[in-house]
Design a protein around this nucleic acid. Structure first.
Lengths: 340, 340
DNA sequence: CTGAAAGCGCTAACAA
DNA sequence: TTGTTAGCGCTTTCAG
């Protein structure tokens, strides 16, 4: 095995505690003692065993982040932001993906890495309130994303209904009247797309327009191909929309691809709005109008909340925090943004 | 603190060892004993403390993966594949990003999480051979990517020169003669883009064509904006190419955006080939021809190599493994692939 | 098949 | 200022 404190101690002819003092930069060590110990450390190539330290201190300095998929740039970008936010608190992030599987989400939330992670940030898709209330793991948990839960955990999410309404309002304001929603899921009320779909409905109502349910398209997943096939299905069934509000940017990108293939122009024939503001949307041949959640704020709030609970002290009530967002208008809804 | 083995043992009225046996599914435990212990475990909500287990066993079952950026979908997709490959060996992956900083790469390679990770998979950009030979951390290390090192570590990378040559050959075969290379870095020979640039040169030579260095554009980074500005710079300086071979897909995407903005058509005016085969390239309004490295193979080989060294036993010579790749032809070089 | 005890490497009282 | 010692919770000989 490796070199331990004891080895260094005997090499330097001092006690184990003295070595520990040096390693941990304790103030009251004489310079010469420090030098002697440091030399032994260097000679032996000693590295502290963090596992032992963790056991002793009861904490590891590692927090976990579980997202559905790295393949979705939104989560990839978010993960980067979380890693950076955590680093500012001297925490390392263990990133995991749940592959959109409820089973995996359950596993993660139950603390499958008990005691090796100090806390968890989870962005669930399928988890239910019951799963959360049945949770036994004692590590603090912070939730991310659109799902709503009646469970005592911090939850960070932008106001999805309001954001969706703003997106739809933008389209209505441009004169569109047949606005499709791409990316609804079948099943329960609380499914992820619920809030954004509700925003779509509410804004129609507010504008005195009828929301046509025939323009709501269910998808299997949240990827580009799901958007492409949803758009194709919608066109095939006849009622061509004059605008599309997609659950997220990937679906929007897929939908635009199908429109291109069908010889329809964006935004000329069909305007498109997405959700997430992934970088990809800023570089297509038609850039994408989208709702841009403040990812840095989301990451920061999540990490700060977790760190606060980890620090103990005050254990505040579970909080619901709403970071900001904004509508970013690009070419997929307005030609004018086009440089030529 | 939490519930420990000891608590369960006293609750069940047995020894600590018996509880351990049950927890670890040791074969020789009478069913009734097992039932009794299991009941105590359930009642107390006992979870094994993995940190303690790690300390005792000298290993953690965690491997680290360090990539430059999650924002680059190539690495995000690769990370997903590595997580899955590792899971098949019962390893958890701690994903880290180096932000393309040499300092961070150094830190990671030196084992800043000593003993909490069993091994490391690193995709370096700036690390030098000296950094690697000076490495003291004893955890096994597997390298990924285009950089070449004279250091005793396993290295997984596709044949970048051959792949680049195939991409350029494709362009030459289509009749292009002014083929730009976007994404070279200034500085040392061994900089990442070196091999792909060399492929560009070699294939020109093999075809009896002159490679025009005025068509090689240096970029600061490897993102979409770097591609966009590189393309703009190239067009601004006058010598318009009839084709572009980009260091990676992101640069290609950025370049295509600039071409669109300038009113040039792809592939009509300028054909474009990328490298990485990120999903994004399959959904633009002009899909992207690219070199597609076998990411699953890369992830699998990396994890397998690491696991093999972790298992100890035979410590084979450092190996250089070359997973496969293929040229995927799409619309950015051939209209014919277009559906209309 | 089960129990007792040692010890993984470290930190933190407490002593000296 | 430095040394001694007792665990953190677990696995693992070695007995019984």
């Amino acid at each position: 095995m490796g070199v331990s404190l004891k080895d260094v101690a005997s090499r330097a002819g001092v006690s184990i505690k003295t070595v520990s003092n040096v390693v941990n930069n304790y103030p009251h060590v004489t310079p010469q003692m420090r030098a002697k110990v440091q030399q032994a450390i260097d000679e032996l190539g000693y590295r502290p065993n963090l596992t032992a330290r963790h056991l002793r201190k009861g904490r590891t300095g590692i927090i976990a982040l579980a997202v559905p998929e790295f393949g979705n740039p939104y989560f990839a970008e978010l993960a980067g932001a979380v890693v950076d936010a955590a680093a500012r608190h001297d925490y390392t992030v263990l990133v995991d993906h749940t592959a959109g599987l409820r089973e995996k989400e359950l596993l993660v939330s139950q603390g499958f890495r008990a005691h090796v992670i100090d806390g968890l940030i989870l962005s669930p898709i399928h988890l239910e309130t019951e799963d959360l209330t049945a949770r036994t793991d004692s590590a603090p948990l912070v939730l991310l994303g659109e799902r709503e839960y009646e469970a005592p955990y911090d939850h960070i999410a932008i106001d999805n209904v309001a954001a969706a309404r703003e997106a739809v309002r933008h389209l209505i304001g441009l004169g569109h009247r047949r606005i499709a929603f791409l990316g609804s899921r079948t099943g329960r009320e609380r499914q992820p797309a619920h809030l954004r779909l509700r925003g779509w409905r509410e804004e129609h109502a507010a504008a005195g327009l009828e929301a046509d349910d025939a323009l709501v398209v269910v998808t299997d997943g949240y990827g580009r191909e799901d958007g492409a096939s949803a758009m194709a299905a919608l066109l095939d069934r006849g009622g061509r929309p004059d605008a599309v509000f997609a659950y997220n940017d990937l679906i929007a990108v897929g939908a635009m691809r199908t429109l291109t293939e069908r010889g329809l122009s964006v935004p000329g024939d069909v305007a498109v709005v997405g959700f997430d503001d992934i970088e990809e949307g800023r570089y297509g041949s038609t850039t994408l109008t989208t709702i841009s959640p403040d990812k840095e704020a989301i990451a920061r709030l999540a990490v700060d909340s977790l760190v606060e609970r980890l620090a103990g002290g005050t254990a505040p009530e579970p909080r619901r925090q709403r970071p900001g967002y904004r509508l970013v208008v690009r070419e997929s809804t307005t030609r004018s943004a086009r440089s030529r």
